[in-house]
Amino acid sequence: MAYSDKVIDHYQNPRNIGTLDKGSENVGTGLVGAPECGDVMRLQIKVNDETGIIEDAKFKTFGCGSAIASSSLATEWLKGKTIDQALEIDNMDIVEELALPPVKIHCSVLAEDAIKAAINDYRTKKGLQPIED
């Protein structure tokens, strides 16, 4: 199976790898997946409390090239968005952008789950209800 150019680009030049202070009040952290399933994503967002805009996003991923690319792309898309806009990111957008084959769709689902988990972590910190699917 050949990888698309965009997957290769994100794999070779991943955007926004790193770690934000998960203890910080305006950082939301989402950790999804499981090592025994072969992929784990940790996605973090830093939200400006005044504007409600995601100022920074970082990720680290254990997984295949498509999983790394999906999370890298997610961080790219998250930056500059409001929480509400971020919630609109659909896994199929990721599939389309990266031209993921059917067997790799679960990577995009995981990235969407990671976004939601990070947002919910942030909301919980702010005393808000987590958003249900």
């Binding site: 990888y3 290769i8 794999y11 992929d39 254990f62 997984g63 295949c64 090239g65 999983a67 790394i68």
Partner: peptide, 11 residues
Amino acid sequence: KFIEGEGLMMG
């Protein structure tokens, strides 16, 4: 340990 085989093969 801590990295995934297919990801590694791509590297």
